[in-house]
Design a binder for these strands. Structure first.
Length: 610
DNA sequence: CGTAAGGTCG
């Protein structure tokens, strides 16, 4: 009956009216205008009979994020007859961040008796992933098979993506493997899945297979590959991706440019990233954020702030990612002045402060040694929103500034309030104990890890070794390492080596150093530390041997020497007297200060750095 | 009528 009605409408007149309004709706650029057209189409009754126009308005409303108006169009139309309208409404929800509404809508659709089709499933899976509902995703997956859409490439690509998005990469891979025909989109989806799971090597291996089967990367694949190469920090491969992007004119796609900047940033190629950035005239917020991050990631927090000043001159709205980057740069600088300024800036620009950003701001204050402000912010978090990382931030903040007792107090309070400490909590509290010489507390907490079923990782052992080491309990430290279930890494042996340096135990130092040279043969810091220990015991022969071994230092090391030299000058200007027993040459004390020396991030080289 | 892969931080 309905079909005959529809056929009646399908005369030439209706068709012309449809295409007329279609053009108007498409060119509509504000909601007010759209609402007017909507009401005209409603009063004339056209919309009731035109599935096509109904869908157009639904999509247009959803472009303006007016999902309620879109829904009212759907409800007023003859949707009962058309799976197209159901799919359009589902798409409106799924593609605009209303993923839970999408799933509710899907279940309404099923209850109404409408059969989903190859257009329905991709939107549904996208929403399952956005809601992190793999269990529901699996239910829908079985419906895919039951309804016979199991070998549709669109549906399969969406399935791969859904499983990967929920962290079930192996389930995604199974779907991928079973596909009879794979297109570029499926390959890219699978490669992206590995890239997102930080398995860059697998991602590139799969890319190779894809190319073997004759597929060429398009610009979207290029974006993913650039991210994977960035994870590996492989400049050579990065330049190959860059060249490929230029050859294929993908450089005109902003996401490609942005991913290249981020890639070079992770490869440590600040200057190349800068060049690309300078040549990009149409920058969006992601371009700026990528360049800001580039500086922060490469230890150039001051450059981050300088670029931010430049950014303010452009008409760009910052987002919460920008805020996070700035806060993290400020944490690196440890400047209280900047901290307060940025916090203020974030509030004034009405950037949405979620818990992650709130914790980052707290962390910034903590790193700037403004623990009062950090604590105040902590107390402002409603109890039902408090999470483990809020506690971790505070505990590590107190610990790193030598307030071990406060850190311990907070840790106990946290347990009393039934929060479950994680591996980071234990790292923070053990490190706090080690820096404040709280050996008994540290031992107790190390035991407690079992109660909270937190696996003891090498970094936890490193804290304990450091703690015993500082307290002069070298045998306890060494015994702990010998009894480790997993293999001790460089952090653990490094902590022991430092302890040996502090307490002048050359024999045990040799054991630690041998392990370190085996584990990290190119890490010059350990050679320096060991040669310092030999220098302490006036064994110049061994000092010479070690120095010879580390001669082939790379450009990174040279840069480091220059930076340290500059730092020493600055330190001298504020009357800091270096502990020159760390300098590893046989020279008189006044000469030692003029020699270059090496510093590493964990401050293991200087015995006067705690 | 039209569907799937994609950039910044953590």
């Amino acid at each position: 009956m309905f079909r005959s009605g529809l056929n009646l409408c399908k005369n030439r007149g209706i068709f012309e009216i449809e295409s007329h309004y279609d053009r108007i709706i498409q060119s509509c650029n504000n909601v007010t205008h759209l609402t007017q057209i909507h009401s005209v189409l409603t009063t004339t009754g056209i919309i009731k009979h035109s599935v096509h126009l109904g869908a157009r308005i639904i999509i247009k409303y959803s472009d303006f994020l007016h999902l309620q108006s879109a829904r009212s169009v759907f409800d007023a139309t003859d949707h009962q007859s058309s799976s197209f309208l159901w799919n359009t409404m589902l798409r409106a929800y799924a593609n605009n961040g209303f993923s839970s509404d999408a799933l509710v809508f899907y279940s309404v659709m099923r209850k109404t008796g409408f059969l989903p089709n190859n257009y329905t499933f991709p939107f549904t899976f996208k929403s399952c992933a956005a809601n992190l509902m793999p269990t529901y995703g699996k239910v829908v997956h079985s419906e895919v098979i039951r309804t016979g859409f199991g070998s549709d490439v669109y549906v399969e690509a969406a399935l791969v993506d859904m499983y990967a998005g929920c962290g079930l990469i192996e389930d995604g891979r199974k779907v991928f493997e079973k596909m009879s025909k794979r297109d570029l989109v499926c390959w890219t989806a699978m490669i992206t899945a590995y890239e997102q799971a930080e398995r860059a090597e697998t991602a590139l291996c799969l890319l190779h297979q894809m190319q073997q089967e004759g597929f060429l990367m398009d610009w979207i694949t290029t974006v993913t590959v650039a991210s994977a190469v960035g994870q590996l920090g492989d400049t050579k491969a990065g330049q190959a991706v860059h060249a490929y992007a230029i050859r294929n004119a993908f450089i005109h796609e902003l996401p490609v440019v942005n991913s290249l900047i981020a890639m070079y940033a992770k490869c440590g190629e600040v200057e190349i990233a800068e060049t690309i950035f300078e040549h990009t005239k149409q920058r969006n917020i992601i371009t700026w954020n990528s360049m800001l991050t580039c500086y922060t990631q490469n230890g150039l927090a001051n450059e981050t702030l300088a670029l931010f000043e430049q950014m303010k001159l452009f008409d760009i709205n910052l987002n919460e990612v920008t805020a996070l980057i700035l806060v993290s740069a400020c944490s690196d600088l440890g400047s209280r002045q900047h901290a307060a300024k940025f916090h203020d800036f974030i509030v004034q620009n009405k950037i949405d402060i979620n818990l992650t950003l709130w914790n980052a701001i707290m962390d910034m204050y903590a790193k700037c040694a403004d623990l009062d402000t950090a604590l105040r912010m902590f107390k402002e978090i409603p109890v039902n929103q408090l999470d483990v990382s809020s506690w971790n931030t505070l505990i590590s903040g107190y610990g790193m500034h030598g307030f071990g007792k406060e850190a311990v107090k907070l840790f106990n309070q946290m347990k009393n309030e039934n929060f479950h400490p994680n591996h980071i909590t234990f790292t923070s509290v053990l490190s706090a104990c080690s820096h404040s010489g709280l050996v008994n507390e540290g031992k107790k907490f190390f035991e407690e890890m079992e109660i909270f079923s937190v696996t003891r990782e090498p970094k936890h052992y490193a804290c304990m070794v450091d703690m015993y080491g500082r307290a002069g309990l070298l045998n306890e430290a060494y015994d702990l390492i010998k009894n480790m279930k997993s293999q001790a890494n460089d952090e653990v042996w490094g902590a022991l080596l430092l302890a040996c340096k502090i307490h002048g135990n050359t024999n045990l130092a040799k054991v630690a150093a041998d392990n370190l040279f085996h584990l990290e043969p190119h890490h010059t810091g350990y050679y320096v530390l060991m040669s310092n220990i030999y220098a302490d015991s006036r064994n110049w022969q061994e000092v010479g041997n070690l120095r010879h071994n580390m001669k082939n230092s790379d450009s990174f090391t040279r840069n480091m020497y220059q930076k340290v030299e500059k730092m020493v000058i600055e330190l001298k200007m504020v009357d800091y007297v270096p502990d020159s027993s760390c300098v590893f040459h046989d020279v008189e004390d006044e000469d030692k200060h003029g020699l270059p020396f090496f510093i590493n991030k964990n401050l293991r080289v200087f015995s006067d750095c705690v």
